[in-house]
Design a protein around this nucleic acid. Structure first.
Lengths: 219, 219, 219, 219
DNA sequence: GATGAATGAGTCTTCATTCAT
DNA sequence: GATGAATGAAGACTCATTCAT
């Protein structure tokens, strides 16, 4: 288990450095110096610098994957909204606990090489698909309006990524209100609800938005 | 003007390479080979590799800044929504015309060095602030519900960034429907409007969303 | 101590090369090839090429400084002349033992950069001042004639530098007779002593040398 | 003659730059910028950078050669001492008029390449030989004591070089007194003349200087 | 297993020189 | 003749990785 401790120490230090300086500006010298091991020892634990980075990345992705669960229907399940909220809450929790890892995923894991890029892309793709499925489900359940599910899924993912990216920079603790704010935004957008309902039409914003303009203009 | 053409050619090729491989894996040899110039010629046009990158980045940011305009009130101005839509439309236009530049801004300009990081951060901060102001304005005009303006501004920025990032990957042409989809999402979220309105309350989603859950559950 | 041997080997080879070709025409490739080490290894021992050069220079200057000692008065001290001779002898010894280092100091350490130039200038300034003080002392003791001490100090330094520079080129061993020749020159110049003494005047060469001319012409 | 003016201008500027920064740190860009000509024009006037430098050097050497004349005997000639003084005076004059050129000869022309090194060495060799011959002549005329003529010649050359090198740094005008000081030093050294004469011996400093020590100690 | 000295391929950058206009 | 853009060889330095101890 001693071995594992050392390894963990290296991972920990590398994580800090990658988060602060990015992959290319972090060098093995930095890592081994911080980790208190010799240069050569590094290569007993990791095949090379890239592998170490990949491992960190995969840990983050695996953890996140696990925290974003499929929305399940059923009498025994919490309401879909609660499941949604729980997902988001778990993600925010992770982000706050692992700011550096999050920073790496969001800011330093991009444009690396084909393999890693695919890994990241696959991860996000999976998330987007999950969101898409949830939207579909929502539409079936008549909770969600009709929309370009894929585009909207990306919007949701983007909103979460951005908020979460901001979180890594600030000294915040987990706040449910933030999660709710994100949820509210995703669910109802920013317009005052009253403006969105119209006796004659289901969805106000449509036909290149002219109707909406009219509705809004009526105010 | 001949000089400017050559310079432009180098910028063009560098842009391609940076977008494809990122800054660190693109080397001067690549750039000069692609540009059909000699190694030394590069340094006639650019002080160094970093400067070239910075120039590309700044061009993108400047162009984007110019395309995102302040929402203006007044009889002679288009409706706020149309101004919003025009902003978004101009951004999407740019992104589609300059996929590589967009890719660089989104994926390769991060974790570079302090100066460039600040430049990017400043750019996004500006955008966020603009969105925030628009939200404020919307609230005053009773078009926008009350919310954590800063958080929502980040959500909106994130949604746009993500969609836009996806656009660079696909072979799409500018579609107004996409812009409308983003707008709809930002304005009304995903919930069916009817669910959001309640005779007794202005905003349904609140108090940790329990009311909403109830409302949604009622369906 | 193994490390020190390698380092010394590099210093030795660099010394040879700098002496033969000067700083600018000696490149790292030369040095590492001669030293039998790899390119990168060089940088384990020296921060850069300039540092290596500086180290060589400083070694030489330090050694020389140490060999040129202040003339001390006192019953227990050797006669001033013997102290002078000892200084000169130690310098000549060094020069012959370290021909290359001497060559570097004399011929390649000049017009380098401000810092190194100052170092060299400082070194010579120190020597000149020491000579000047010795002259002062000699005047007080009535061993030395009145003169422009600074100018004469430079003359003495120059004479020694030139002789020493010649030594580095020839295959000589340390010869006391050479030291004495320099001393004689410095002390009595080249004129036949008889010509210098005049019953009526202390110093013959004066008043724009006309008197001397007369004296010499009398012969 | 226009051409010659331009050429002279380039030589003038190059001289300044070489004197200030040395050969290697002076680049063609500097030279052409200062000279107000285009890069390519430089190569219409000079084959390359080295040639330009060589030309400057040769001018200096030629001028100096011309100023150091052989001591001639004869009723119609000035006294040898006056001829010596005139030589020295002409050299000092040149040095003061052409400080930069002197600086180049003394400090930057060394360790350059074989050909230039030989040129410089040849120049000095010539001077040394001239001094040597003068010493010989002086000995024949019983004006000069017996000595290692070659060594003494180097001492004299060195003294002059050093003084002259100092002159280039200071803001002095030609002073005959300085010339006399050098002459005095060369002729009579620094010892008080009385100490050098001994009724029984011609030259006091001899037999490893012990006699002199004794003589000096007698004081 | 641990070490850290050694490696050398790779990269940016400079600059004297050329040559088409 | 004059220009200055273009050239590309050359050089310093970095750093991930290896390997003898």
């Amino acid at each position: 288990m001693y071995r594992q401790e050392r390894r963990a120490q290296v991972l920990r230090q590398a994580k800090r450095l990658f988060a602060r300086k990015g992959y290319h500006r972090t060098n093995i010298s930095d890592i081994v110096a911080r980790s208190g091991i010799a240069r050569g020892t590094f290569y007993l634990y990791f095949r090379n610098k890239r592998d170490l980075f990949e491992e960190l990345l995969e840990r983050a992705l695996a953890e996140l994957k696990q925290r974003v669960r499929r929305i399940r229907m059923g009498q025994l399940e919490p309401s879909p909204l609660d499941q949604l909220r729980a997902n988001l809450s778990r993600v925010v929790e992770f982000v706050l606990a692992e700011r550096e890892l999050t920073d790496i995923v969001l800011n330093h894991a991009t444009g690396f090489d084909h393999e890693l890029d695919s890994k990241i892309a696959g991860f996000y793709e999976r998330i987007v698909t999950q969101i898409e499925r949830s939207l579909e489900l929502g539409i079936e359940m008549k909770l969600v309006r009709k929309c370009d599910k894929r585009a909207v899924a990306h919007c949701i993912l983007g909103a979460v990524k951005e908020i979460v990216g901001q979180l890594t920079l600030k000294d915040l603790h987990h706040s449910e209100s933030l999660v709710d704010e994100i949820l509210s935004f995703g669910l109802q957008g920013v317009a005052r609800p009253e403006l969105l309902v119209d006796s004659k039409r289901d969805v106000v914003l449509s036909a290149r938005g002219q109707a909406t303009d009219a509705a809004l203009a009526r105010q």
